[in-house]
Computed example of a mutant assay.
Amino acid sequence: MVQKALLNKQTMIDLLGNDYDSIQYFRLQFVEQSEAILPELLEYLESGCFDKLQLKAHFLKTSAKAVGAEMTADSLYQLELSANAQDPKTSAMIMDSLLLLHTELKAIILESSNRD
């Protein structure tokens, strides 16, 4: 099994070439998008709206894959599956993991955007 990367930098290079400014723009857009969606995911989990949880997780997973956030995309996929099964305990554990991954990913993206 291939180890997933927190941020696979090659993903965006494959999509956009070596256009550093565009790559950083899309990474920062992903951070902003996920900052808006993660609270919604928590709300849907807490209120038992598993259909909405599944749809939003799928939407964010697509964006995570596009920027190379492989571990985040994998966690979102697992969240989709647990939401489909309407499994609140597993969904809550995945959300905890996802929030930690997001914090780490955000730090990496912001650090790389501050390069000289």
Rank of each mutant, 00 (worst) to 15 (best):
residue 23 I to P: 01
residue 97 S to G: 15
residue 113 S to F: 01
residue 25 Y to G: 07
residue 53 L to T: 01
residue 72 T to N: 11
residue 72 T to D: 06
residue 114 N to C: 13
residue 68 G to P: 08
residue 41 L to P: 08
residue 84 N to M: 10
residue 66 A to D: 14
residue 73 A to H: 12
residue 82 S to V: 05
residue 92 A to Y: 06
residue 46 E to P: 00
residue 114 N to D: 11
residue 27 R to N: 12
residue 17 G to D: 03
residue 61 K to Q: 14
residue 18 N to C: 09
residue 20 Y to F: 14
residue 27 R to V: 07
residue 104 E to G: 04
residue 19 D to P: 11
residue 69 A to H: 07
residue 33 Q to K: 14
residue 1 M to V: 15
residue 11 T to L: 02
residue 21 D to Y: 14
residue 52 K to F: 08
residue 55 L to A: 14
residue 16 L to Q: 03
residue 44 Y to H: 10
residue 60 L to A: 08
residue 16 L to V: 03
residue 44 Y to N: 06
residue 97 S to H: 08
residue 105 L to F: 08
residue 104 E to L: 11
residue 1 M to S: 15
residue 25 Y to Q: 11
residue 111 E to R: 05
residue 56 K to L: 13
residue 32 E to P: 05
residue 40 E to A: 02
residue 11 T to I: 05
residue 116 D to I: 11
residue 104 E to A: 05
residue 80 E to F: 09
residue 106 K to C: 02
residue 5 A to N: 09
residue 70 E to K: 12
residue 62 T to C: 11
residue 3 Q to C: 07
residue 4 K to T: 09
residue 44 Y to F: 10
residue 97 S to L: 12
residue 1 M to C: 12
residue 70 E to T: 10
residue 86 Q to Y: 08
residue 87 D to K: 02
residue 35 E to S: 13
residue 89 K to P: 09
residue 31 V to D: 01
residue 90 T to R: 09
residue 78 Q to A: 12
residue 46 E to D: 06
residue 23 I to Y: 05
residue 43 E to D: 03
residue 62 T to I: 12
residue 70 E to S: 06
residue 93 M to S: 12
residue 10 Q to G: 03
residue 90 T to M: 08
residue 55 L to R: 14
residue 91 S to Y: 01
residue 87 D to T: 08
residue 21 D to S: 15
residue 62 T to R: 12
residue 77 Y to T: 14
residue 15 L to N: 06
residue 48 G to H: 00
residue 20 Y to H: 13
residue 26 F to S: 04
residue 108 I to E: 04
residue 111 E to S: 13
residue 95 M to D: 00
residue 90 T to H: 05
residue 60 L to I: 14
residue 78 Q to K: 09
residue 92 A to C: 07
residue 13 I to M: 04
residue 29 Q to R: 13
residue 15 L to V: 14
residue 38 L to N: 04
residue 24 Q to K: 06
residue 98 L to T: 04
residue 34 S to Q: 07
residue 116 D to W: 05
residue 47 S to E: 02
residue 66 A to E: 11
residue 68 G to M: 09
residue 1 M to Q: 08
residue 104 E to K: 02
residue 37 I to W: 04
residue 23 I to H: 04
residue 69 A to T: 14
residue 51 D to A: 11
residue 58 H to C: 02
residue 67 V to C: 01
residue 113 S to E: 03
residue 68 G to K: 04
residue 20 Y to D: 09
residue 62 T to A: 13
residue 51 D to Q: 10
residue 12 M to E: 05
residue 72 T to F: 11
residue 14 D to M: 07
residue 107 A to E: 13
residue 25 Y to L: 15
residue 3 Q to I: 15
residue 84 N to H: 11
residue 110 L to H: 10
residue 52 K to T: 05
residue 35 E to W: 10
residue 83 A to G: 06
residue 33 Q to F: 14
residue 30 F to V: 06
residue 20 Y to L: 13
residue 98 L to H: 03
residue 101 L to K: 09
residue 73 A to F: 15
residue 26 F to M: 12
residue 95 M to H: 04
residue 76 L to Q: 03
residue 49 C to I: 00
residue 77 Y to Q: 15
residue 27 R to A: 07
residue 42 L to C: 02
residue 85 A to W: 04
residue 109 I to T: 01
residue 48 G to R: 01
residue 59 F to C: 12
residue 79 L to E: 03
residue 105 L to Q: 04
residue 35 E to G: 06
residue 2 V to H: 04
residue 39 P to N: 00
residue 13 I to P: 05
residue 55 L to D: 14
residue 108 I to W: 01
residue 106 K to M: 03
residue 32 E to N: 13
residue 115 R to W: 09
